[in-house]
């Protein structure tokens, strides 16, 4: 690429794309709990800049009309996001943790997901919801979940999981410009990490519904979702030192799902391991496992394998949580079982 590689953290990438999209389109607004912080106090503006600091500084550039601190009232403000999206705005709404889904599920599943279809296509729903996922910070069962499956279950929603700063920036831009409701899952433990990727300063988009092949190989396909792509890459490095040629797919979109890229890869490598931090029952990994079994069975040398947490809530104690969460060693071990 010639020029110096521009490394930024995930948080910086998201903050940058939000700023750029708000500059680009005056109908983009941001709301959620503490997205500025210090709500209404002129001397305390931007006290937080978002619970994950994703929205830091935006209120100074775009003002209180477009950057709105909300009460802790998810059904209220996510519902308001739905209504605003239907009537001319492009709201970006933050649901602090995906574990809080339960208090606003009706608005997401019954209204955001269904209105376009239910109203015969006459109402558009350019709503973006960003939310935090991920275990590893000893935050226990309600603040550590990774819940994709219930969102992907609903027709009408689009769901994306950036794997690092570069994909975050491009997927956010696409989500905000999309006329359908898009849920963006941010892995919290990975938010502070910089990636080695070059993140261009100028705006760009990454298409929703398209997976990316992080590294090509011929012996086995490892499929990652967001942060677990990183685990797949680390596992690939170890497996390659044993002489295996590993292909890694960075799924990026979990709805719509890029079935073509998955099937093409698996038909080539004949083996697949899917790594998903969501609970194992009815998750994206099981969906892909079924897809591969139904559509590529004759190509397979071994049954598809899933690496997921056990079917328990996320435990608090670091001694237990370390066992719960998928890691590189679990991916390597699963891959070896499939390869051998």
């Amino acid at each position: 690429m010639g020029d110096k590689v521009r490394k930024v953290s995930y948080i910086q990438a998201v903050n940058e794309v939000l700023r750029q999209e708000m500059e680009r389109d005056s109908s983009v607004i941001v709301m959620g709990e503490d997205v500025a912080g210090g709500g209404g106090r002129p001397d305390k503006k931007d006290a937080w800049g978002g619970p994950m600091r994703l929205t830091k500084g935006l209120i100074f550039e775009f003002g209180e009309n477009r950057v709105r601190d909300t009460p802790i009232s998810e059904a209220g403000f996510i519902g308001a996001g739905v209504g605003a999206a239907a009537t001319g705005l492009r709201p970006v709404v933050e649901l602090m943790y995906v574990g809080f889904l339960g208090v606003c599920a009706d608005q997401i599943f019954n209204n955001a997901a269904k209105m376009h279809y239910m109203f015969g296509g006459k109402v558009k729903m350019p709503l973006t919801i960003m939310t935090a996922t991920g275990a590893g910070l000893n935050n226990a069962a309600q603040h550590s979940e990774t819940v994709y499956s219930v969102f992907t279950h609903y027709p009408g929603l689009k769901c994306v999981v950036p794997s690092g700063p570069y994909t975050a920036k491009g997927l956010y831009a696409s989500a905000i410009r999309d006329d359908d409701p898009v849920i963006i899952f941010n892995n919290r433990p990975a938010m502070g990490l910089r990636s080695d990727d070059h993140v261009p300063e100028e705006p760009y988009t990454i298409p929703i519904g398209k997976a990316s092949i992080s590294v090509e190989g011929t012996d086995i396909t490892l499929i990652g979702i967001g942060y677990t792509t990183r685990l797949c890459m680390e596992a690939a490095e170890e497996l390659e030192s044993d002489g295996y040629s590993v292909e890694v797919i960075d799924l990026l979109s979990i709805s719509p799902l890029d079935t073509e890229t998955i099937l093409e890869s698996v038909r080539k490598t004949r083996k697949v391991v899917i790594v998903d931090e969501d609970y194992p029952r009815c998750n994206v990994a099981s969906d892909i496992s079924a897809l591969v079994a139904e559509e590529a069975f004759d190509y397979l040398d071994a049954p598809p394998k899933r690496v997921t947490p056990p079917h328990t809530s996320v435990p608090y104690s670091r001694a237990l949580e370390a066992h719960w969460i998928p890691n590189k060693d679990k991916v390597v071990s699963a891959a070896r079982q499939v390869l051998e």
Binding site: S27, I29, N65, R66, A75, G76, F77, I78, G79, A80, G81, V82, G83, A84, A85, A86, T87, G88, L89, P91, D106, Q107, N110, N111, M115, M118, F119, V123
Partner: peptide, 24 residues
Amino acid sequence: LGANGVVGSNIPVSIGAALSAQVL
């Protein structure tokens, strides 16, 4: 902007339309 079969569900949505009017 729609009849809604879930009791109470449309109330938060309705203030979103009011929010659009205010922002725009």
